[in-house]
């Protein structure tokens, strides 16, 4: 992509429940911001748990310069219940200038939530959809399962290996994930965009994973998001 194209990139991170979409989306948004792109917009399209994901981090991320389209804690008091709610501003995310990074929540039809966004008037910009996969989750635990899962999503543009065991992670699961996702990607005819890894593994995991895919090191923000 040219610098101009990256500045207008529209990306959606989809994947199974708890696969790591939010963490990847936040880090990606911050990375884009650090390259000098303005504006960078992070969009919370997690509808089932809008109050557990990006909301608690909104103020912090906005202080760093990212525009966050998500509910504010203050506006959620008096709602009566935390639940399935689409914040109106989110619908127009794709009509905005700048780099837009969308965190798409789960559900049987998770990826279909993208249809709730109003598309740009002219399709000069295409929305790139990346599937975040953690093979430590049984539904996407092996090559066959990953292929089945991604096929059911329809048209997507790349896979991301985000395999880990949370605080209990060891390099073995990251490597295994790389192998499984790369193999699945080959079958699907899709690129592996990155292997995403907690930055604490920087020494053990270099710039490329065991299959030669680029590594994107993540700073963990999500532990602060949940209560």
């Amino acid at each position: 992509m040219t610098k101009g194209e990256i500045a207008q990139t529209k990306e959606a991170y989809v994947g199974e429940y708890a696969s790591g979409k939010s963490e990847v989306a936040i880090n990606r948004a911050l990375w884009l911001f650090e390259t000098g792109i303005r504006p960078v917009i992070l969009v919370d399209l997690d509808l089932v748990e809008p109050f557990y994901t990006l909301r608690p981090l909104k103020k912090e991320l906005e202080a760093r310069g990212i525009k966050v389209l998500a509910w504010e804690t203050l506006n959620t008091i008096g709602l009566g219940e935390t639940g399935n709610l689409l914040q109106p501003v989110v619908r127009w995310a794709l009509r905005r200038e700048g780099a837009v990074v969308i965190d798409v929540g789960y559900g049987v039809a998770g990826i279909e939530k993208l249809r709730l966004l109003e598309r740009p008037a002219f399709e000069r910009e295409s929305l790139k959809i990346y599937v975040v996969i953690n093979i430590a989750r049984p539904m996407t635990g092996d090559v066959e399962a990953v292929v089945d899962y991604v096929r059911a999503l329809g048209a997507v543009h790349g896979l991301i290996n985000n395999s880990h065991w949370g605080d209990d992670t060891e390099p073995a699961i990251i490597h295994e994930g790389a192998q499984v996702v790369t193999k699945a990607a080959k079958i699907l005819g899709l690129p592996v965009i990155w292997t995403t890894v907690d930055q604490k593994w920087q020494k053990e995991i270099g710039s490329y994973d065991v299959c030669g895919n680029p590594v994107f090191f993540l700073k963990r923000y999500m532990p602060r998001a949940f209560w």
Binding site: N84, L85, L86, K113, R115, L116
Partner: peptide, 11 residues
């Protein structure tokens, strides 16, 4: 209920 139908305005 477009949110749960996952439908855009037209649909």
């Amino acid at each position: 209920c477009p949110t749960n139908w996952s439908t855009n305005a037209k649909d």
